[in-house]
Nucleic acid binder design. Structure first.
Lengths: 203, 203
DNA sequence: ATATTTGTTAACCATATGGTTAAACTAAAT
DNA sequence: ATTTAGTTTAACCATATGGTTAACAAATAT
């Protein structure tokens, strides 16, 4: 029996699909374009992934599973809240700078199909906020932090870190900067954002 | 001569197109679906708007021109920075709660076609950040605010206000709340977000 | 060696889709 | 009443698109 060489063609397809789905989204992506990108016959896409939907889901799961550990870093880490925020902010911005498509892609497709996230919730490794909430409350009790709800703080951290990537074109226009200026601005945020948050919540 | 009744059919089409484009985006939207939504013949869409692209642009400009004045409120208002942030946060969250599709739609389509924002920049009423930056610097000089770059503060304000709407499905999953809980959470943010920002920047 | 399974391609198919056309309809102007 | 110009519809068209098929090539098992 000939063994599947899944490492080769199948992976080439996935990488090509990633590039195309990232840029065009599910609706805008074309199977032919993915085939061209992978430099193979269009039939191969169906041979390995059956349908556009399944190929898309492979790409989406892949993207989501890349992002989830980043969030778990802040949620399940053992350090103090301040340390966690500083570490997360630097790491996350570095990480996304290398994969700038990721947050936009995930958010866009979840808006298109909100049920999608329910499938994710079941999988282990899906970010859970409970431990983080407890730690916030402990530090509030200790007088280290001002009172704030863990949910709201978590959303604020996400917002300040992720939004600049999701809204990049809008920000470039409003702040009136080119790609270089934008890159610098994002780089500055690695420390700016952490300071901004810590300033706000420290008692 | 029969007079154009542009107010009627043309407007019905635009409203239907708005609903469909909001939910499906340019790529996911179908002309037939818009026609069905408007309860008219598909040919009418082309009669009044020539092409899908032009109909889409009508919807997009409409949406953008609805959002722009909201941002100008904070950028060109005469009150103190703290007042501006408090007013903007309450008003903006109220406004978007009534049009929850708006930010997602605009951001999604700008990512699909970043050149689009360049056309917007020329139009008068396009948000400009310069006055806001000066006012920040003045209040920093006066010792009212801690040092912060106007651009970064502006991005932070945008992020904290807009992100929860753009990433609604993600947030609902992470924070593990239903629609009702999400609504309450957003309602709370009308004051939470302003406090969070002010806490951070006040000297 | 050869049968068998797996990988790959070109050609094809059904349907969806944006867009067009020509004719019918409506209502005001003459 | 008839002309005139805008409005609306059904039918149509060309092309794009996701997906399939059948034949062929390559690898593996017997």
């Amino acid at each position: 029996m000939a063994q599947k060489k899944d490492t080769n063609t199948e992976h080439i397809i996935l990488k090509a699909a990633k590039r195309v789905f990232q840029n065009k989204g599910m609706d805008g992506a074309r199977m032919q374009e993915i085939a061209d990108e992978a430099k193979i016959n269009k039939a191969m896409l169906h041979y390995y992934y059956r349908s556009k939907q399944l190929l898309f889901e492979a790409v989406f799961n892949n993207a989501f599973m890349l992002l989830a550990p980043q969030l778990n870093a802040i949620l399940n880490d053992e350090s103090s809240v301040e340390e966690k925020i500083r570490n997360f902010t630097t790491n996350y911005i570095s990480f996304i700078s290398k994969h700038p498509y990721l947050p936009t892609f995930i958010i866009q497709e979840l808006n298109r199909n909100p049920d999608f996230v329910l499938k994710m919730k079941d999988k282990k490794g899906f970010p859970n906020i409970e431990k983080f909430k407890k730690e916030i409350n402990v530090e509030i009790q200790k007088g280290i932090l001002k009172p704030i709800k863990g949910e709201q703080l978590f959303i604020n951290i996400m917002a300040l870190n992720i939004f600049p990537f999701v809204a990049a074109p809008l920000i470039k226009a409003f702040v009136n900067i080119d790609d270089k200026g934008y890159k610098q601005l994002v780089e500055d945020r690695k420390t700016e954002v952490a300071d901004f948050i810590i300033n706000s919540i420290k008692a």
